[in-house]
Design a protein around this nucleic acid. Sequence first.
DNA 1: CTCCTTTGATGTAACGATTAATCTATCGGA
DNA 2: TCCGATAGATTAATCGTTACATCAAAGGAG
Lengths: 331, 331
Amino acid sequence: MTSLKQIAKEMGVSVATVSNVLTGKGRVSEDMSARIKAYAQAIGYKPSVFARALKTGQSGVLGLVMPDLTNPLFPRIAQSLSIAAEQRGLGILIGDSRGNADRQREAIHWLADRGVDGVLIVPQKGTSPEVPAGLPNVIINTASDPRSAVAADHVGGGTLLGRHISELGHTHVALLGGDPVSEVQQDRIKGMIAGLGPDVTCHTIWGDDGLARLCALAAEGVSAVMATSDLLALGAHSRLSQAGVRVPADISLTGFDDLPLALAMHPALTTVAQDMDTIATYALRILTDRIAQKPDQTQGVAVPMQLVLRASTTRAPTPTTTPQPNTEFRT
Amino acid sequence: MTSLKQIAKEMGVSVATVSNVLTGKGRVSEDMSARIKAYAQAIGYKPSVFARALKTGQSGVLGLVMPDLTNPLFPRIAQSLSIAAEQRGLGILIGDSRGNADRQREAIHWLADRGVDGVLIVPQKGTSPEVPAGLPNVIINTASDPRSAVAADHVGGGTLLGRHISELGHTHVALLGGDPVSEVQQDRIKGMIAGLGPDVTCHTIWGDDGLARLCALAAEGVSAVMATSDLLALGAHSRLSQAGVRVPADISLTGFDDLPLALAMHPALTTVAQDMDTIATYALRILTDRIAQKPDQTQGVAVPMQLVLRASTTRAPTPTTTPQPNTEFRT
DNA sequence: CTCCTTTGATGTAACGATTAATCTATCGGA
DNA sequence: TCCGATAGATTAATCGTTACATCAAAGGAG
C-alpha cells in the first residue's frame, strides 16, 4: 500500500505537508503542491478510507435499508441511488429488512455499527422504523407520510391514472390493491378515486380474494380495472383472459410502477412511473445535508409521477360518454 | 462512542486485557473475562470497525459488482448474498457496471479503493472482468465458464426444459434468445437443444427480430417456444396471443429464472429456477477462503437448476407421439 | 532453596490520516 | 537596525484496535 508517509519520505517533506496538499487545507507553496500532486498521481496514491474514517469519524458510506430485496422496485432504487451516491464519492451498504419490522430494526442497527454516516430507509409497510439517536437518516415512503423526506407522489400518480380512465368514459371501475396495510398502496388508491371523480362507481378489492372476485365484477359491468402494481395488473389480466374477457376491448387495465413486464405484456400496460433518479438525488442531498448538520433546505419533497400511456386502456365499451373536465388536478 | 480505553479505565485494567477478553486471544483469568464481558455487554460496546480495519487490514466488507442493477435477477442475488454475508458478519457494498465493460473495471477498482476484502462479480456479458492483482474475487457467471467459481448450471437447466418439451411430444420448437453475446443465454440454448434430443427440429431466433418472426414460425408448425428468460417468454406470449395463437393449447411456452411474473402470467409459466441461496452460500465460502488464503476446497461448482412445471406447457397438439426415452441426462 | 515454567496481566508500538500548535525564515515598515 | 507579520513547512497528538514483548507472581521439579 501507498501511504502519506511513503510519499513524504520520497519527496523529502513531512507527512503533514503531503496531507495538506492532498486535502487542500493548510498553506503550501505552489510548486511543492504541484510536485507532490504529480508524484501522488504517478504512484496512484489512494488514501486509506479506514484511517480517514477513524480520524474524522466519517466513513463516506451510506446504508440502504429496503423492506424486501426481492421487491421488484429495488433494482431501480438501488441503481439510481448508487449512481447518485457515486457522484458524491459515497458508497452504499445494503441492508435487508426481509419483510418484518424486527429485522428492519436490526438491519438499521447493524449498519450503524458498521459505521455508516447515515441511512436511507424504505420502510417496511405499516411500520415506523426506529433509528438510533444521532444517526442521520432519510425515509422514502410516500409523499403523504410526514416522516418521508422525499417520495414519489403516489396519490398524484393514482390521480393521473384515475383521470385518464375517467376521461375515457369509464363509470364502473374496480380498484385492485395488494395489501391494505401499505401506506403506498393506500395512497395510490386514494389518488385513483380522486382522479376518477365523484361520478364514477368504485369497487375496491384487495389481494388474492380481490383477484378472485374480479371476473364477477366484470360481469356486473365494471369496464376498467386499476391495480396498485404492475404485477397485480398482470395477475388480473391472467384471470380476465382466462375467463374470456378481452383487454382492452372488454375491459381496460392499468398498473403502477412501469416495471419491465409492463412493456412485455400484451397489450402493453398503461401505468405510471416513478422518477427514481430525481428521488435518489433528493434523498442523497437531504441525507448529506443532515450528515453535515446543515438545516434542511427542502423537506417532504413529493416527486410527481409520470403517466405512461400504452395499449391496455381504451374508451369504455358502452357509449356512456360523460366527458367530465376535471380541473382540480394538482401537479 | 464507547471504546476499549473507556472500559479499561472503568474496570481498572489495561486496554490490552479488555481487547484480549473481547477477541478471546490472549490469556485472561476466568472471572476477569466474565466481568469484562458483562460490562461490555451492559454498556453496549461495539468495536470500531475502522480502527480494526486500519490495524488488521480486513474490513469485513465485500463488494458486489452487478452487470446492471436493473437486471430482474439482481434482487434475488442481492438478497441471498446479503443473508449469507450477514451470517458471517460481513457487509456488502454495491457496485454497478451499468451495462459496459469500462464501468465494470471502474466499479471494481472503486470498491478496491474503498477497502473491500474481496469482490463478487457477475460479469458483464461477453467481457472478462479485470481484477486488481491481489484482490480476492469470485466470478459468478455460468457453469461452463472456467472463470466462474460457482454458478447455476444453465446448460443443465436448459436440458431439463428441453427434455420436458421433448417428452410432451413436441418435434418443432423455436428457441428464443435475447442476446447472442451472453454466455449464459448461449448455455441455456445449448442445454435446451441437448435436452430436446436429435429428433426435434429447432429454430433458434434472437432478440426483437426473433420475436417478430415468431408468429410466422407458429404458422409453420412450431408447437413450442422456449425463451431464455421469463421476460422474453412474456413478450412471446404477447405476440402470440395477439395473433390469436393460444398458449398452451396451440403452442407451449417456457421461460427461464422463475421471476415473480412467471406465476402472475396466465397461463402460469413453466420455467426453471436458480437456487440462489446455494449459489450465494458457495460464492461466499469460496471468497472468504480466498481472502483467508486457504487453498480452494471447491472449484467451478455447478449448482443444478430446478424445473418448475406450470400451465404453459402441454402435450403437442398434433398426435405425433414419439415418446423417446432420453437416458443421457445428467443431474 | 534455587531455577524454570506457566499464568495472568501490562506497556507500547504500530496502522494511516488529520489537525492544531509550533517553528523558521523572509520581507516590509518604522 | 529592529520588530512584527506572514508564508511555508514541521512536530506531535490523536482516533480505537491489535499484537508482540515484557513483567510479576506463583507453582513445580530438582
